[in-house]
Structure formats: structure tokens, C-alpha cells
Amino acid sequence: MVASVTTEPESSTRRSMATELTIGDPALADRLARGMDASEKRLRAVAAEALDPGVADIAGHLLASGGKRLRPLLALLGAEFGERDPSAAVAAAALAELVHVASLYHDDVMDQARTRRGVPSANARWGNSTAVLAGNWLLSKAAQLSSELGPEAIRLQSDATHRLVMGQVRELIGPSGDDDPLSHYFAVVAGKSAALIAMALQLGAVRTGAPERVVEALAEYGEHLGIAFQVADDILDITSSSEVSGKEQGKDLAIGVASLPVLLALAAERPEADELRTLLNAAATARTVATVAPEGAGLPRAVALLDRCGALSEARAVMHARLLRARTALNGLPHGPATRALHALCDFVAHRDH
């Protein structure tokens, strides 16, 4: 049986997000909500294209689990800057989500994650090989969809997918001996997060014939917003419960991944650095030996160290600096409800880590 890709509560959540970003403009809120619903139908149709019911079930697993659908929303907002009907961007919105969800399958294998969006991860349920193939299948469907949208959509999707894969490879390999760990971190984030957010905005704008200067401004905005979004994710991993974030609390810490707060703490060689490094190495070793790290091993102490040394505050400062650069990029866009919504999205990211 093909997994259902949307439920009424999830649809209401997405509509609520669109409404929050468009306060004072019910017409835009309604267009976005209708576009989101239409993109969900397109995603459901993609899952149904798998002739094998098992493939459909696995490939539709994370699509069915919902999520904020940020990237489809961004594609629809980008479409507001063109001359054609924004509904022309519905397929672009679905395309953006397909690439994103495919990346989640691969990320969960790399991280050995057990849950995603409040449900068992595909790798936990079906195994690593199956999860990787499901992600690949979704990428192949994204490529097919981009071919229907024209040469520019093909270019944007292929460029973003290339950057995504390179970001995943860089993360897997890690920095070389000569690499600055912070520079390596931002290169990974640019590929894995910023590239997809920028792609979504550009795809929507291109579909409705937005001027090139607008497409470029949206791309710059998306790059900085994407990095800020990932930094907020790093902070959430440390500070928020699974119920809030939708993922395992402290997942990065538990597997020894050096997120931005950790890198900042280690880079300054604070008094807490040696103990923090020991905790991370122990977590990584336990994960390698036992496949699954001991529940909460060293996590409370690591969180306390990151807070005490000021690394969490520094990470928040980095996030806000990126959001300021994103807002600055919006100066190149015409004033209007869609631009105000993109400013509101910066506010949303700024408060994500609370």
C-alpha cells in the first residue's frame, strides 16, 4: 500500500506557518496554502508512481511523516516575484521537497539515526542499504520532474544536488589535517542546507519569470538563511527535547559529531575544551563499537560545558549575523507582502532555538 503523504493536522500545521509569515495579507496566505496543498498532491502522485508496493512504502515513509515543508513554501514565495500565476510553481515546490527528503534518508544512514520527524528512521526500519536506495529513488524522481520544468530547472536542481552530495562527502570524510574545522563546517552546511533552500527560492522565481536580479537576490538570501537554519538546528540538538525538535535530543553529541557550538568551544581552547573533547571521543568510540551509543552517555555534562563556556551564545551570534546578511539581500527585492514574509521567516529562524 502506498503511504499517505498528508493528513489534516499536518495540512493545518503548514497552513498555520504560511499564515504566520503573511500576517496582514490574507490573499497571499490563501495562495500559499493552496499551493502547499497542491504540492502535497504532487508528492503523493510521485510516491504512487512506484510500481512495487514495497518501494512505494519505503520511499513514501518520510514524505508521509509530514514536516514543516519549508522548501515548498520557499518555492511558492519565490514565485510571487514573477509575472506569471504563482500556481505555475507547484511542481517546483514538490521538486524542492523531493531533493530535501532524499537527503534526509542519506543523512540518517550517515548519522545512524533511529528516529526522524517523530517516527522510526528508514534505516532503523529497513536497514541502511534500503534507506540509501530509497533516497536515490527520490533523487531520480526529482530529476525526472525537473526535466518537465525546462533547462533552467534542470540546471538548478543538478547544481544543488551536486552541492548536496559534496557536502555529505565532506561531512563523512571530515577536515584534513590542514583544514580549519570551522571553514570545513561552513562548507558542509553550504552544501547540505543552504544549497537546497536557495534552490527552492530560485526554482519558484524562475517558473514565474522573475527578473534575473531578483533570482540572484533570492539565491543570496537563501544561502545565508540556510546556514542560519542549520546553526539553529545545531543549537536545538543540544538544548531541545525530541518532542520539540522532532529528532533525538543530543543526536550529534551522542555520535561525536562536532556541530558549531562544539567547534567554537574547541577552537578557543577554553578550560572546558579537554573534557568536552574526551566526552565526544568516548561517544564516537561507543557508537563505533556498539552501533548505538549508550543512552545519554555524557550528554548532560557536555551540554553543561557548552553552556558554561559560552559556546552556545557564540553560536547564536553566528546565526543572527547570517540572518542579518539574509535580510540585507532582501534589499534587492521589490517591497511587498512576499518580501515581508521572507523577513518574517528570518524572525522564525531566530526564535527556533528557544
Rank of each mutant, 00 (worst) to 15 (best):
P26Y: 06
G78R: 02
P72L: 08
C346N: 04
L74M: 15
R34T: 14
L74R: 06
I238M: 11
A267Q: 04
A48C: 12
A3D: 05
P120S: 06
E80N: 05
A18K: 02
I23D: 09
F229H: 08
A75E: 01
T339M: 08
T288H: 10
R322S: 06
P9Y: 13
S176L: 07
A124C: 07
D353S: 15
H61W: 09
P120R: 00
G191I: 03
V289N: 14
P151S: 14
R114Y: 01
I154R: 04
L77P: 02
V188H: 07
E171M: 03
M110C: 01
D159M: 12
V90G: 05
G336Y: 12
G298E: 09
T19I: 09
V303K: 12
G298W: 05
V292S: 08
Q157A: 14
R155F: 05
A286Q: 13
G310K: 09
R170W: 06
G78L: 05
E80S: 14
R155C: 03
E295S: 13
T288M: 13
A92G: 11
A190Y: 12
E269Q: 09
V262G: 10
D179V: 01
P337I: 04
R114Q: 08
A254P: 02
V119G: 07
E10P: 03
G174I: 08
S259W: 11
T285M: 11
R15W: 10
G332T: 04
A47P: 00
G82T: 08
L299P: 12
R316A: 13
A254H: 04
L253K: 01
I173T: 13
K141T: 08
T285H: 10
P300I: 06
L138S: 08
A198K: 01
A205I: 02
L98K: 05
A290C: 10
E275Y: 05
D353P: 00
P151L: 14
A284S: 11
L342E: 05
S146T: 12
S4N: 13
P337Q: 11
A273K: 00
S146Q: 04
I227F: 04
K192T: 00
E8W: 03
A232C: 12
I235T: 08
A293V: 10
A341S: 15
A219M: 03
M17S: 06
A89Y: 13
A290V: 01
M110V: 00
S240H: 08
T288C: 09
D25N: 15
M110I: 01
A79C: 10
E152I: 09
Q249Y: 07
L279W: 10
P300K: 03
L312W: 07
S193L: 11
G222P: 06
L342I: 10
A297V: 04
L70D: 02
D347M: 06
L77W: 07
